[in-house]
Design a protein around this nucleic acid. Sequence first.
DNA 1: GATGAATGAGAGTTCATTCAT
DNA 2: GATGAATGAACTCTCATTCAT
Lengths: 195, 195, 195, 195
Amino acid sequence: MKRNKPKYKQIIDAAVVVIAENGYHQAQVSKIAKQAGVADGTIYLYFKNKEDILISLFREKMSIFIEKTEEVIAGKQTVSEKLYVMVENHCKLLSEDHHLAIVTQLELRQSNKDIRFKINDVLKGYLQLVDKILISGIEAGELPEDLEVRIARQMIFGTLDEVVTTWVMNDQKYNIVAQVPAIHKLLLHGCGGRN
Amino acid sequence: MKRNKPKYKQIIDAAVVVIAENGYHQAQVSKIAKQAGVADGTIYLYFKNKEDILISLFREKMSIFIEKTEEVIAGKQTVSEKLYVMVENHCKLLSEDHHLAIVTQLELRQSNKDIRFKINDVLKGYLQLVDKILISGIEAGELPEDLEVRIARQMIFGTLDEVVTTWVMNDQKYNIVAQVPAIHKLLLHGCGGRN
Amino acid sequence: MKRNKPKYKQIIDAAVVVIAENGYHQAQVSKIAKQAGVADGTIYLYFKNKEDILISLFREKMSIFIEKTEEVIAGKQTVSEKLYVMVENHCKLLSEDHHLAIVTQLELRQSNKDIRFKINDVLKGYLQLVDKILISGIEAGELPEDLEVRIARQMIFGTLDEVVTTWVMNDQKYNIVAQVPAIHKLLLHGCGGRN
Amino acid sequence: MKRNKPKYKQIIDAAVVVIAENGYHQAQVSKIAKQAGVADGTIYLYFKNKEDILISLFREKMSIFIEKTEEVIAGKQTVSEKLYVMVENHCKLLSEDHHLAIVTQLELRQSNKDIRFKINDVLKGYLQLVDKILISGIEAGELPEDLEVRIARQMIFGTLDEVVTTWVMNDQKYNIVAQVPAIHKLLLHGCGGRN
DNA sequence: GATGAATGAGAGTTCATTCAT
DNA sequence: GATGAATGAACTCTCATTCAT
């Protein structure tokens, strides 16, 4: 399994750095190889092609994202608390890794439709977590029975995404984690929940 | 003024069609020229370069968007109504022009950062409309005084954008306008408003 | 006869200015038209094509050159004196018109072979003047009978051209007319003449 | 060091052939690549851009020129002899390589000012050789003390250049080496020297 | 497994010239 | 005679991927 070999992660991390610092369209395979300390050709021993690097990058980072989110939700009882820690976790993780924030919010979006559809597939794992929170809230009677889960999920993810992207486009110069309570309040009320 | 000459709009409309049907990276200037029924060189009598076509395209379409939105809002009194017609207008306009929806939600996002920052500038005009609705709601006592307008605006736009993008990515196969009431309810409640 | 109409000279003078100030490859027909105060199309009422402008420019200026040279030679008796005033005239005329110096010594040389061959044809009138001076010198016994006139003429023109070109490439920052005595001495002795 | 790799010289030689046979403006990179037997992209592994090919071409050929000239001068004592072998060498080398003669005397001069200034820099090495001959002649008492070295050098180079260019423009149809004694005599006398 | 030299397809833009008005 | 909007051909350079070593 190539994914567990050291060079696999080495190349992905190199890709994050190179894309964040040079931009998507200036992130040539040769630059990534150099940053990773391997030869150009070596990249192709671990990845099918450039597209595969980008999707793998997103998959690797997203799996960490999902894992952590599941962890923080696990300890919470109410839908309000679950939503809160999810929003907090989302903002925190991207706050802590400036490079990753640039890559996921700005650079990777410039990729072609093919890649973006595949990225969207990976994203579904995260969106299912949101759904799970909402459904648990409905079942617990904390959220209205007639809540349109799909649209609520789109609101939650769309809002988070817009908030984070705006913050990255403003050079990450303010503290996004400080906005978590406000975001949480809007989203919870939007879903029909109360604190 | 080049913007009022017939060929200006002709080229922009051609660009929308070509980008929607071929994708951003396959939308060569020569293809746009052919679709517009002019020579390649003619494009450059009306636009500085390819980037200028894309930004102008977005600016033209967005100005129509803003204009229509202002019109529908004008006749409404409550913040709930205003928000409703804004959401409805957003979904309707993109529903009615499949090509434009593809271009703005999928294709134009593949452009480089330069273009995307300029597109974002144009977008600000629309976001200010959202702000105006929210502020009028606060002043009328329909929305809480402590509403964080900036974050609420990011929620509203982020949600609309996510909803529409998801719809486009699913080949526009369901009726998005039917979702307007649900979206409106979520957003209004999120902002702390009531019907 | 188009050559005597005011716009003919107007366009040629505009061409000199535009070429001198923008360089040969940045001297577009539209720029020349603008400088001349006429429409692009008007150029083609007076000149067959762009090449024709350049050759006509050279022909016009060269005919003045030749005329003046003939005038100054006319009053002189010895080959030494004739050569002196010719060298002096060559340096003076180009000294007095910086734009023309740039155009003939640097810019026009970037033209394609076709134009350069035609320019060479025009140049022949000037070279014949040199020949005439040399032959008169031989006939007067001031220059050796076995002087190779063709090579001597190439020396005289090649030297003048090199001297002036070097001066132009150095931004015309020194006084080239001051070098006339030295140049004259070298050329006269080279041809086997004495003062 | 790329300059010593076989493909470096291979590409330069291909450029000489292509430029000589097609003309400067018809010497596309793809043509040069084809002639060199490499892919278009390979050119850019050895040269920064097309301009770099041309300047490198001139530098390579000129360094051979200078080297050979130094060799033939080395064995000579008097300034007359040194000047003779220099003139002879100049004519011979260009006589022996028709392609190179066309390229340096006609085609390369059509390049833009940027390239021509860089070519002029390379030329300085050759001009310094001329200076060295002249100064050695003055020190040996063979040339007058008051000889203006700079102008004399411009005469020598300007004459050689004019002679060779005229010969190339006449399709190299006469024997230029046969003119060496006559050229030598003119230049030597011009400088105030005797046989 | 690792290397890196070589490949070659693909597109934005300029500008001399025309011709309907 | 004068205009100027429209034309359309033409070319450098980049970079993902391969494969002999």
